[in-house]
C-alpha cells in the first residue's frame, strides 16, 4: 500500500478476536517453546487424527468378534491393546470411540458456549431488568438436573448422538453465561466502552467489538475445562446406558463395559480411562497456551 508513514497502520493485517494475526507467531512460539503446551497440542492432534482416520488406521473392524476373548495387551500380538469380552480389538474400538467421545464433547460445549456467552453478554452489558430476567432463566437451567434432561430426551426421541449433545450442551449453558456475565460486568465499567459509545457505535457492535474480545481469555479456559468434563459426561451417559446406541464404541461405554470385568481383564476399563485422562490433560494444557498467546498484555514486563 502506498502510504508514506513507514508502513505502520494499515488494514492489511487480519485479526481474530481483535488480536493481530501475527499474534499467532506468539501462539506458535508458546506451543513450541513450552513443553507443556507442546504436549497438549500433540496429544490433541494425535487423538483427533486417530478419530478422523479411524476407518483407515484401525487394524480391525471394531465390531468383528474373535473366539479368543479377553486377550491381554501385548505389543507382539495382533491386538496391542488386547481384546474385550466379545473378542473385539480394543485399539480399533478406542479409535472409533474417539470419534464419538471427542466429537460429542466438542460440539456440545461449542453449542453451550455460543448460547451461554450470548446470554451472559447481553445480561451483563445491559444490566438491570434484562440482567435479572436472563439470569433467573439461567438459574432455572442450572437447577434442572442435566441427567434428568438426558433421560427425558432418550425417553422421547430414543437413543442417539444428538440427544447426548443436546443434554450436555444444555448443562453447560449456565457455566458460560455466568462467567461471561461476570467478565462483562467489570469490563463494561471500563471507560473504553463509554468511549466506543461516544464515537457512535451501536450496543450490538460495542458488545461484539469491544467487550467480548476482552472477556475471551477466561472463556477459552472455561471451554477447555468443559470439553474435558463433557467427555466424562458422555462416559457417564454411556455408562448408564442412555448414551449413544449401546453397540457403538465410545470411551465411556468401553469403560463401563470393562468395569464388571476389572478382576479378570483390567485393560478393558483402564485403557479408555487413561485415554480420557490424557485427552483432558492435553486439552487443558492447550487451552492455557491459547489463553497466554491471546493476551496482548502478556508480554514481558508490565507497562
Amino acid at each position: 500500500m502506498g502510504a508514506d508513514y513507514g508502513g505502520y497502520g494499515s488494514d492489511d493485517t487480519t485479526r481474530l478476536f481483535g488480536v493481530r494475526l501475527d499474534r499467532f507467531d506468539r501462539l506458535r512460539e508458546t506451543l513450541t517453546g513450552d513443553y507443556k503446551a507442546t504436549f497438549g497440542l500433540t496429544t490433541v492432534i494425535l487423538f483427533v487424527l486417530a478419530a478422523i482416520f479411524a476407518p483407515e488406521l484401525a487394524p480391525f473392524d471394531p465390531m468383528a468378534q474373535e473366539y479368543a476373548i479377553m486377550q491381554a495387551p501385548s505389543l507382539s500380538s495382533a491386538h496391542p491393546f488386547g481384546t474385550d469380552s466379545f473378542g473385539r480389538d480394543l485399539l480399533s474400538r478406542m479409535m472409533y470411540g474417539a470419534r464419538i467421545s471427542l466429537g460429542v464433547s466438542l460440539v456440545a460445549v461449542t453449542i453451550g458456549a455460543v448460547v451461554g456467552i450470548g446470554l451472559g453478554l447481553v445480561a451483563g452489558y445491559f444490566g438491570g431488568v434484562v440482567d435479572d430476567a436472563l439470569m433467573r432463566f439461567v438459574d432455572v437451567l442450572w437447577a434442572f438436573p442435566w441427567l434428568l434432561i438426558a433421560i427425558m430426551l432418550v425417553a422421547v426421541f430414543g437413543q442417539g448422538v444428538w440427544n447426548v449433545i443436546a443434554a450436555i450442551a444444555f448443562a453447560y449453558i449456565d457455566d458460560f453465561a455466568r462467567l461471561a456475565r461476570g467478565e462483562v460486568l467489570s469490563i463494561r465499567e471500563e471507560e473504553f466502552v463509554l468511549a466506543a459509545k461516544n464515537i457512535g457505535l451501536s450496543d450490538t457492535r460495542i458488545m461484539i467489538e469491544e467487550v467480548l474480545p476482552n472477556a475471551v481469555a477466561p472463556l477459552i479456559v472455561q471451554f477447555t475445562v468443559l470439553v474435558a468434563r463433557a467427555m466424562l459426561a458422555e462416559s457417564t451417559l454411556s455408562f448408564l446406558g442412555i448414551g449413544v446406541k449401546p453397540t457403538t464404541p465410545t470411551w465411556g461405554a468401553l469403560l463401563g463395559q470393562g468395569r464388571s470385568l476389572i478382576g479378570q481383564a483390567w485393560w478393558i476399563s483402564i485403557i479408555p480411562g487413561i485415554a480420557i485422562v490424557v485427552t483432558v490433560l492435553g486439552i487443558n494444557l492447550f487451552g492455557d497456551a491459547l489463553r497466554d498467546a491471546f493476551d496482548v498484555r502478556g508480554e514481558e514486563g508490565s507497562p
Partner: peptide, 17 residues
C-alpha cells in the same frame, strides 16, 4: 469526550491506531 484515565479509555486489545 476525553476521559480521565487513558489506560481505561482505550481498548487494551486494539492498537491505538
Amino acid at each position: 469526550y476525553v476521559f480521565q484515565d487513558p489506560m481505561s479509555a482505550l481498548n487494551p486489545r486494539k492498537t491505538v491506531g
